[in-house]
Design a protein around this nucleic acid. Structure first.
Lengths: 198, 198
DNA sequence: AGAGTTGCTGGACATCGCGTCCAGGAATGG
DNA sequence: CCATTCCTGGACGCGATGTCCAGCAACTCT
Protein backbone atom coordinates (compact mmCIF):
# COMPACT_ATOMS: atom_id res chain seq x y z
CA UNK A 1 0.00 0.00 0.00
CA UNK A 2 2.95 2.27 -0.05
CA UNK A 3 2.63 5.27 -2.22
CA UNK A 4 6.28 5.00 -3.04
CA UNK A 5 7.28 4.86 -6.69
CA UNK A 6 7.22 1.35 -8.04
CA UNK A 7 10.19 -0.73 -7.14
CA UNK A 8 11.16 -3.28 -9.76
CA UNK A 9 11.41 -5.95 -7.06
CA UNK A 10 15.02 -6.96 -6.88
CA UNK A 11 16.00 -10.16 -8.59
CA UNK A 12 16.69 -12.96 -6.14
CA UNK A 13 19.70 -14.13 -8.08
CA UNK A 14 21.35 -10.77 -7.67
CA UNK A 15 20.80 -10.71 -3.95
CA UNK A 16 22.00 -14.24 -3.53
CA UNK A 17 25.17 -13.64 -5.48
CA UNK A 18 26.02 -10.38 -3.79
CA UNK A 19 25.39 -11.79 -0.35
CA UNK A 20 27.41 -14.89 -1.13
CA UNK A 21 30.32 -12.69 -2.16
CA UNK A 22 30.04 -10.53 0.94
CA UNK A 23 29.97 -13.59 3.16
CA UNK A 24 32.86 -15.16 1.30
CA UNK A 25 35.06 -12.13 1.84
CA UNK A 26 34.33 -12.08 5.54
CA UNK A 27 34.94 -15.81 5.83
CA UNK A 28 38.26 -15.50 4.04
CA UNK A 29 39.29 -12.58 6.20
CA UNK A 30 39.09 -14.90 9.15
CA UNK A 31 41.78 -16.99 7.53
CA UNK A 32 44.06 -14.69 5.57
CA UNK A 33 44.98 -11.02 5.59
CA UNK A 34 42.87 -8.93 3.26
CA UNK A 35 45.82 -8.11 1.06
CA UNK A 36 46.39 -11.69 0.08
CA UNK A 37 42.83 -12.50 -0.86
CA UNK A 38 42.22 -12.53 -4.61
CA UNK A 39 39.01 -11.97 -6.46
CA UNK A 40 39.26 -15.54 -7.69
CA UNK A 41 39.44 -16.75 -4.08
CA UNK A 42 36.33 -14.83 -3.18
CA UNK A 43 34.38 -16.03 -6.17
CA UNK A 44 35.36 -19.61 -5.56
CA UNK A 45 34.42 -19.48 -1.89
CA UNK A 46 31.11 -17.93 -2.84
CA UNK A 47 30.47 -20.61 -5.43
CA UNK A 48 30.15 -18.04 -8.12
CA UNK A 49 31.87 -17.48 -11.42
CA UNK A 50 34.67 -14.97 -11.37
CA UNK A 51 32.90 -13.01 -14.09
CA UNK A 52 29.90 -12.74 -11.84
CA UNK A 53 31.97 -10.90 -9.29
CA UNK A 54 32.61 -8.09 -11.73
CA UNK A 55 28.95 -7.88 -12.59
CA UNK A 56 28.24 -6.71 -9.06
CA UNK A 57 31.41 -5.07 -7.84
CA UNK A 58 34.05 -3.04 -9.55
CA UNK A 59 36.87 -4.66 -7.64
CA UNK A 60 37.86 -6.11 -4.30
CA UNK A 61 37.83 -2.75 -2.57
CA UNK A 62 34.34 -2.05 -3.84
CA UNK A 63 33.12 -5.20 -2.19
CA UNK A 64 34.89 -4.15 0.98
CA UNK A 65 33.21 -0.77 1.02
CA UNK A 66 29.90 -2.53 0.57
CA UNK A 67 30.75 -4.68 3.55
CA UNK A 68 31.70 -1.67 5.62
CA UNK A 69 28.32 -0.16 4.90
CA UNK A 70 26.72 -3.33 6.20
CA UNK A 71 28.82 -3.13 9.33
CA UNK A 72 27.84 0.48 9.86
CA UNK A 73 24.20 -0.43 9.39
CA UNK A 74 24.56 -3.27 11.85
CA UNK A 75 26.16 -1.02 14.42
CA UNK A 76 23.49 1.61 14.06
CA UNK A 77 20.71 -0.93 14.20
CA UNK A 78 21.81 -2.24 17.55
CA UNK A 79 21.41 1.40 18.49
CA UNK A 80 23.65 2.33 21.33
CA UNK A 81 21.28 1.30 24.04
CA UNK A 82 21.66 4.00 26.68
CA UNK A 83 21.06 1.51 29.46
CA UNK A 84 23.90 2.76 31.56
CA UNK A 85 24.58 6.44 31.70
CA UNK A 86 28.08 7.04 30.40
CA UNK A 87 30.65 8.74 32.56
CA UNK A 88 30.86 11.48 29.96
CA UNK A 89 28.74 12.07 26.88
CA UNK A 90 31.81 11.89 24.68
CA UNK A 91 32.47 8.39 25.95
CA UNK A 92 28.98 7.11 25.29
CA UNK A 93 30.23 4.97 22.43
CA UNK A 94 32.71 3.04 24.52
CA UNK A 95 30.53 0.54 26.29
CA UNK A 96 28.43 -0.46 23.28
CA UNK A 97 31.44 -0.77 21.00
CA UNK A 98 33.28 -2.98 23.42
CA UNK A 99 30.23 -5.14 23.83
CA UNK A 100 29.78 -5.49 20.10
CA UNK A 101 33.42 -6.36 19.72
CA UNK A 102 33.15 -9.01 22.38
CA UNK A 103 30.05 -10.57 20.86
CA UNK A 104 31.58 -10.68 17.41
CA UNK A 105 35.12 -11.13 18.56
CA UNK A 106 36.36 -13.16 15.59
CA UNK A 107 34.74 -10.82 13.13
CA UNK A 108 36.11 -7.70 14.75
CA UNK A 109 39.54 -9.14 15.01
CA UNK A 110 39.51 -9.98 11.31
CA UNK A 111 38.20 -6.57 10.37
CA UNK A 112 40.11 -4.27 12.64
CA UNK A 113 43.12 -6.36 13.61
CA UNK A 114 46.47 -6.70 11.94
CA UNK A 115 45.45 -8.55 8.82
CA UNK A 116 42.36 -6.45 8.37
CA UNK A 117 41.89 -3.88 5.65
CA UNK A 118 43.09 -0.46 6.71
CA UNK A 119 40.02 1.13 5.28
CA UNK A 120 37.82 -0.61 7.80
CA UNK A 121 39.76 0.78 10.71
CA UNK A 122 39.85 4.19 9.11
CA UNK A 123 36.14 4.23 8.54
CA UNK A 124 35.38 3.08 12.05
CA UNK A 125 37.75 5.72 13.35
CA UNK A 126 35.97 8.35 11.29
CA UNK A 127 32.56 7.28 12.55
CA UNK A 128 33.56 7.32 16.17
CA UNK A 129 35.46 10.59 15.86
CA UNK A 130 32.34 12.15 14.41
CA UNK A 131 30.29 10.96 17.36
CA UNK A 132 32.78 12.28 19.87
CA UNK A 133 33.15 15.58 18.11
CA UNK A 134 29.44 16.13 18.14
CA UNK A 135 29.18 15.10 21.76
CA UNK A 136 31.86 17.57 22.62
CA UNK A 137 31.06 20.58 20.59
CA UNK A 138 27.46 20.56 19.55
CA UNK A 139 26.41 21.20 16.03
CA UNK A 140 28.38 24.26 15.10
CA UNK A 141 31.61 23.05 13.60
CA UNK A 142 32.45 26.56 12.56
CA UNK A 143 32.43 27.80 16.10
CA UNK A 144 35.17 29.99 17.45
CA UNK A 145 38.71 28.74 17.26
CA UNK A 146 40.15 27.42 20.44
CA UNK A 147 43.60 26.21 21.27
CA UNK A 148 42.31 22.67 21.44
CA UNK A 149 39.50 22.21 18.95
CA UNK A 150 37.01 19.42 19.37
CA UNK A 151 38.51 17.66 16.43
CA UNK A 152 41.85 17.25 18.11
CA UNK A 153 40.30 15.94 21.31
CA UNK A 154 38.17 13.55 19.33
CA UNK A 155 41.25 12.19 17.60
CA UNK A 156 42.94 11.61 20.91
CA UNK A 157 39.96 9.82 22.39
CA UNK A 158 39.26 7.64 19.38
CA UNK A 159 42.90 6.93 18.67
CA UNK A 160 43.33 5.71 22.22
CA UNK A 161 40.20 3.62 21.98
CA UNK A 162 41.07 1.96 18.71
CA UNK A 163 44.55 1.09 19.92
CA UNK A 164 43.26 -0.41 23.12
CA UNK A 165 40.57 -2.30 21.26
CA UNK A 166 43.04 -3.76 18.78
CA UNK A 167 45.38 -4.70 21.58
CA UNK A 168 42.59 -6.41 23.45
CA UNK A 169 41.30 -8.27 20.42
CA UNK A 170 44.63 -9.52 19.22
CA UNK A 171 46.07 -11.01 22.32
CA UNK A 172 44.04 -13.54 24.19
CA UNK A 173 44.39 -11.38 27.21
CA UNK A 174 42.49 -12.43 30.25
CA UNK A 175 40.98 -8.99 30.51
CA UNK A 176 37.23 -8.85 30.53
CA UNK A 177 35.20 -6.35 28.58
CA UNK A 178 34.36 -4.51 31.77
CA UNK A 179 38.01 -4.21 32.69
CA UNK A 180 38.86 -2.84 29.28
CA UNK A 181 36.17 -0.24 29.61
CA UNK A 182 37.30 0.65 33.11
CA UNK A 183 40.89 1.03 32.00
CA UNK A 184 39.93 3.25 29.13
CA UNK A 185 37.65 5.42 31.19
CA UNK A 186 40.17 5.75 33.97
CA UNK A 187 42.76 6.97 31.50
CA UNK A 188 40.67 9.36 29.49
CA UNK A 189 37.87 10.66 31.66
CA UNK A 190 40.05 12.95 33.80
CA UNK A 191 41.38 14.69 30.72
CA UNK A 192 37.86 15.36 29.54
CA UNK A 193 36.91 16.95 32.84
CA UNK A 194 36.89 20.53 31.64
CA UNK A 195 34.83 19.60 28.63
CA UNK A 196 31.33 19.45 30.07
CA UNK A 197 29.65 20.32 26.79
CA UNK A 198 28.69 23.86 25.98
CA UNK B 1 92.40 1.26 15.31
CA UNK B 2 89.23 -0.50 16.20
CA UNK B 3 89.68 -4.07 17.26
CA UNK B 4 86.54 -4.91 15.35
CA UNK B 5 86.68 -7.87 12.99
CA UNK B 6 87.89 -6.99 9.52
CA UNK B 7 85.34 -5.23 7.42
CA UNK B 8 85.51 -6.11 3.75
CA UNK B 9 85.26 -2.43 2.85
CA UNK B 10 81.94 -2.03 1.08
CA UNK B 11 81.92 -1.49 -2.62
CA UNK B 12 80.96 2.03 -3.55
CA UNK B 13 78.70 0.86 -6.32
CA UNK B 14 76.64 -1.14 -3.90
CA UNK B 15 76.23 1.74 -1.51
CA UNK B 16 75.33 4.13 -4.28
CA UNK B 17 72.69 1.81 -5.67
CA UNK B 18 71.13 0.98 -2.35
CA UNK B 19 71.01 4.57 -1.27
CA UNK B 20 69.57 5.64 -4.60
CA UNK B 21 66.82 3.08 -4.17
CA UNK B 22 66.09 4.16 -0.61
CA UNK B 23 65.90 7.79 -1.68
CA UNK B 24 63.74 6.94 -4.64
CA UNK B 25 61.19 5.17 -2.49
CA UNK B 26 60.96 8.10 -0.13
CA UNK B 27 60.68 10.54 -2.99
CA UNK B 28 57.90 8.52 -4.58
CA UNK B 29 56.06 8.23 -1.29
CA UNK B 30 55.75 11.99 -1.33
CA UNK B 31 53.77 11.67 -4.52
CA UNK B 32 51.86 8.42 -4.42
CA UNK B 33 50.57 6.04 -1.77
CA UNK B 34 52.97 3.23 -1.01
CA UNK B 35 50.61 0.64 -2.35
CA UNK B 36 50.67 2.00 -5.84
CA UNK B 37 54.41 2.27 -6.17
CA UNK B 38 55.92 -0.53 -8.24
CA UNK B 39 59.43 -1.87 -8.12
CA UNK B 40 59.85 -0.63 -11.67
CA UNK B 41 58.89 2.88 -10.56
CA UNK B 42 61.49 2.83 -7.81
CA UNK B 43 64.23 1.53 -10.04
CA UNK B 44 63.46 4.07 -12.70
CA UNK B 45 63.43 6.96 -10.24
CA UNK B 46 66.72 5.72 -8.84
CA UNK B 47 68.22 5.48 -12.30
CA UNK B 48 68.96 1.86 -11.81
CA UNK B 49 68.08 -1.28 -13.69
CA UNK B 50 65.13 -3.19 -12.35
CA UNK B 51 67.30 -6.27 -11.99
CA UNK B 52 69.63 -4.28 -9.80
CA UNK B 53 66.83 -3.73 -7.33
CA UNK B 54 66.55 -7.45 -6.73
CA UNK B 55 70.28 -7.73 -6.23
CA UNK B 56 69.95 -5.65 -3.09
CA UNK B 57 66.44 -6.14 -1.83
CA UNK B 58 64.12 -9.10 -1.85
CA UNK B 59 61.08 -7.00 -2.67
CA UNK B 60 59.42 -3.65 -2.04
CA UNK B 61 58.69 -4.44 1.58
CA UNK B 62 62.28 -5.37 2.19
CA UNK B 63 63.38 -1.97 1.00
CA UNK B 64 60.76 -0.42 3.24
CA UNK B 65 62.02 -2.28 6.28
CA UNK B 66 65.49 -1.08 5.45
CA UNK B 67 64.14 2.45 5.34
CA UNK B 68 62.39 2.00 8.66
CA UNK B 69 65.65 0.94 10.20
CA UNK B 70 67.20 4.14 8.92
CA UNK B 71 64.37 6.14 10.42
CA UNK B 72 64.81 4.39 13.75
CA UNK B 73 68.51 5.07 13.66
CA UNK B 74 67.88 8.69 12.85
CA UNK B 75 65.43 9.02 15.71
CA UNK B 76 67.82 7.42 18.17
CA UNK B 77 70.73 9.46 16.96
CA UNK B 78 69.02 12.68 17.72
CA UNK B 79 68.76 11.22 21.17
CA UNK B 80 65.76 12.48 22.98
CA UNK B 81 67.46 15.51 24.43
CA UNK B 82 66.04 15.81 27.93
CA UNK B 83 66.30 19.55 27.83
CA UNK B 84 62.89 20.09 29.28
CA UNK B 85 61.74 17.80 32.03
CA UNK B 86 58.64 15.99 30.84
CA UNK B 87 55.42 16.28 32.78
CA UNK B 88 55.56 12.55 33.31
CA UNK B 89 58.28 10.05 32.47
CA UNK B 90 55.90 8.09 30.26
CA UNK B 91 55.37 11.19 28.16
CA UNK B 92 59.04 11.91 27.64
CA UNK B 93 58.79 10.90 24.00
CA UNK B 94 56.10 13.42 23.14
CA UNK B 95 58.06 16.61 22.79
CA UNK B 96 60.94 15.17 20.76
CA UNK B 97 58.66 13.23 18.43
CA UNK B 98 56.55 16.27 17.72
CA UNK B 99 59.63 18.31 17.04
CA UNK B 100 61.04 15.72 14.69
CA UNK B 101 57.75 15.52 12.90
CA UNK B 102 57.66 19.27 12.49
CA UNK B 103 61.18 19.46 11.14
CA UNK B 104 60.56 16.67 8.66
CA UNK B 105 56.94 17.41 8.12
CA UNK B 106 56.67 16.25 4.52
CA UNK B 107 58.59 13.08 5.25
CA UNK B 108 56.53 12.20 8.27
CA UNK B 109 53.33 12.90 6.48
CA UNK B 110 54.35 10.56 3.68
CA UNK B 111 55.48 7.85 6.06
CA UNK B 112 52.82 7.92 8.70
CA UNK B 113 49.93 9.61 6.96
CA UNK B 114 47.15 8.14 4.89
CA UNK B 115 49.11 6.97 1.90
CA UNK B 116 51.96 5.71 4.00
CA UNK B 117 52.83 2.09 4.49
CA UNK B 118 51.00 0.58 7.44
CA UNK B 119 54.15 -1.11 8.59
CA UNK B 120 55.82 2.20 9.27
CA UNK B 121 53.05 3.32 11.56
CA UNK B 122 52.98 -0.06 13.22
CA UNK B 123 56.70 -0.05 13.84
CA UNK B 124 56.66 3.47 15.21
CA UNK B 125 53.74 2.51 17.40
CA UNK B 126 55.65 -0.49 18.67
CA UNK B 127 58.73 1.55 19.43
CA UNK B 128 56.87 4.20 21.35
CA UNK B 129 54.75 1.67 23.21
CA UNK B 130 57.91 -0.04 24.32
CA UNK B 131 59.28 3.23 25.64
CA UNK B 132 56.10 4.03 27.51
CA UNK B 133 55.79 0.56 28.93
CA UNK B 134 59.28 0.69 30.30
CA UNK B 135 58.77 4.16 31.71
CA UNK B 136 55.66 2.92 33.46
CA UNK B 137 56.56 -0.44 34.79
CA UNK B 138 60.26 -0.81 35.04
CA UNK B 139 62.08 -3.81 33.67
CA UNK B 140 60.06 -6.67 35.01
CA UNK B 141 57.44 -7.43 32.39
CA UNK B 142 56.51 -10.57 34.24
CA UNK B 143 55.49 -8.70 37.33
CA UNK B 144 52.26 -9.38 39.10
CA UNK B 145 49.07 -9.07 37.14
CA UNK B 146 47.12 -5.94 37.70
CA UNK B 147 43.73 -4.96 36.43
CA UNK B 148 45.36 -2.46 34.11
CA UNK B 149 48.71 -3.76 32.92
CA UNK B 150 51.32 -1.35 31.67
CA UNK B 151 50.81 -2.70 28.19
CA UNK B 152 47.23 -1.53 28.06
CA UNK B 153 48.09 1.93 29.31
CA UNK B 154 50.92 2.16 26.83
CA UNK B 155 48.54 1.29 24.01
CA UNK B 156 46.16 4.01 25.10
CA UNK B 157 48.88 6.63 25.32
CA UNK B 158 50.55 5.76 22.05
CA UNK B 159 47.31 5.23 20.18
CA UNK B 160 46.17 8.67 21.23
CA UNK B 161 49.50 10.18 20.25
CA UNK B 162 49.66 8.59 16.83
CA UNK B 163 46.12 9.64 16.03
CA UNK B 164 46.75 13.22 17.05
CA UNK B 165 50.03 13.28 15.15
CA UNK B 166 48.41 12.00 11.98
CA UNK B 167 45.60 14.47 12.33
CA UNK B 168 48.01 17.31 12.80
CA UNK B 169 50.22 16.29 9.90
CA UNK B 170 47.45 15.74 7.43
CA UNK B 171 45.47 18.89 7.75
CA UNK B 172 47.24 22.13 7.38
CA UNK B 173 45.91 23.08 10.73
CA UNK B 174 47.12 26.31 12.16
CA UNK B 175 48.12 24.55 15.33
CA UNK B 176 51.70 24.93 16.39
CA UNK B 177 53.85 22.11 17.68
CA UNK B 178 53.65 23.51 21.18
CA UNK B 179 49.87 23.61 21.05
CA UNK B 180 49.73 20.02 19.89
CA UNK B 181 51.91 18.96 22.74
CA UNK B 182 49.87 20.96 25.21
CA UNK B 183 46.65 19.44 23.98
CA UNK B 184 48.01 15.94 24.22
CA UNK B 185 49.45 16.44 27.68
CA UNK B 186 46.30 18.09 28.95
CA UNK B 187 44.26 15.11 27.81
CA UNK B 188 46.49 12.31 28.98
CA UNK B 189 48.46 13.50 31.95
CA UNK B 190 45.56 13.43 34.43
CA UNK B 191 44.85 9.82 33.62
CA UNK B 192 48.44 8.92 34.33
CA UNK B 193 48.35 10.59 37.72
CA UNK B 194 48.23 7.41 39.76
CA UNK B 195 51.08 5.90 37.81
CA UNK B 196 54.09 7.40 39.48
CA UNK B 197 56.40 4.53 38.60
CA UNK B 198 57.02 1.70 41.02
C1' DA C 1 1.96 -21.34 -17.42
C1' DG C 2 4.37 -18.95 -20.91
C1' DA C 3 6.96 -15.15 -22.78
C1' DG C 4 10.33 -12.05 -22.20
C1' DT C 5 13.78 -10.16 -19.48
C1' DT C 6 17.76 -10.54 -16.75
C1' DG C 7 21.56 -12.84 -14.54
C1' DC C 8 25.05 -16.50 -14.47
C1' DT C 9 28.73 -18.91 -16.58
C1' DG C 10 33.28 -20.23 -18.01
C1' DG C 11 36.48 -19.46 -21.06
C1' DA C 12 39.46 -16.38 -23.87
C1' DC C 13 42.02 -12.29 -23.99
C1' DA C 14 45.15 -8.32 -23.05
C1' DT C 15 47.62 -6.10 -19.42
C1' DC C 16 50.28 -5.56 -15.53
C1' DG C 17 53.56 -6.40 -11.76
C1' DC C 18 56.42 -9.73 -9.78
C1' DG C 19 60.66 -12.44 -9.15
C1' DT C 20 64.33 -15.09 -11.59
C1' DC C 21 67.95 -15.79 -14.64
C1' DC C 22 71.75 -14.84 -17.69
C1' DA C 23 75.81 -12.97 -20.37
C1' DG C 24 78.23 -9.04 -21.76
C1' DG C 25 80.08 -4.70 -20.40
C1' DA C 26 81.64 -1.42 -16.69
C1' DA C 27 83.39 0.03 -12.45
C1' DT C 28 86.06 -0.97 -8.55
C1' DG C 29 89.73 -2.56 -5.26
C1' DG C 30 94.18 -4.40 -4.54
C1' DC D 1 96.86 -3.58 -14.54
C1' DC D 2 94.24 -7.56 -13.43
C1' DA D 3 90.86 -10.12 -11.01
C1' DT D 4 86.74 -9.45 -8.80
C1' DT D 5 82.41 -7.73 -8.24
C1' DC D 6 78.54 -5.15 -9.75
C1' DC D 7 75.29 -3.30 -13.19
C1' DT D 8 72.46 -3.99 -17.04
C1' DG D 9 68.71 -4.93 -20.11
C1' DG D 10 66.22 -8.23 -21.85
C1' DA D 11 63.63 -12.56 -21.74
C1' DC D 12 60.88 -15.74 -19.24
C1' DG D 13 56.98 -17.85 -16.41
C1' DC D 14 53.72 -16.83 -13.18
C1' DG D 15 49.64 -15.11 -11.08
C1' DA D 16 46.15 -11.49 -10.66
C1' DT D 17 43.37 -8.10 -12.80
C1' DG D 18 39.51 -6.42 -15.53
C1' DT D 19 36.88 -6.99 -19.99
C1' DC D 20 34.13 -9.31 -23.23
C1' DC D 21 31.07 -12.63 -25.20
C1' DA D 22 27.52 -16.26 -26.31
C1' DG D 23 24.82 -19.79 -24.58
C1' DC D 24 22.24 -21.42 -20.93
C1' DA D 25 19.46 -20.95 -16.62
C1' DA D 26 16.64 -18.54 -13.53
C1' DC D 27 13.54 -15.26 -12.44
C1' DT D 28 9.48 -11.71 -12.99
C1' DC D 29 5.39 -10.32 -14.63
C1' DT D 30 1.11 -10.85 -16.66
Amino acid sequence: MTAAPRRPRPDRRVERSKQALRDALIALMHEHPYERISVADIAERANVGRSTFYVHFADKDDLLVDGIDQLKAWLRERGDAPEVTPAHPALAFVRPMIEHAEQQRALFRALVGRGGAVQVSEELHRMLAELVRVALGGKATVAKRRPAPEEAIAEVVVGAFMALLRWWLERDSAMTAAEVEATFTRQLLPGLAGWTRR
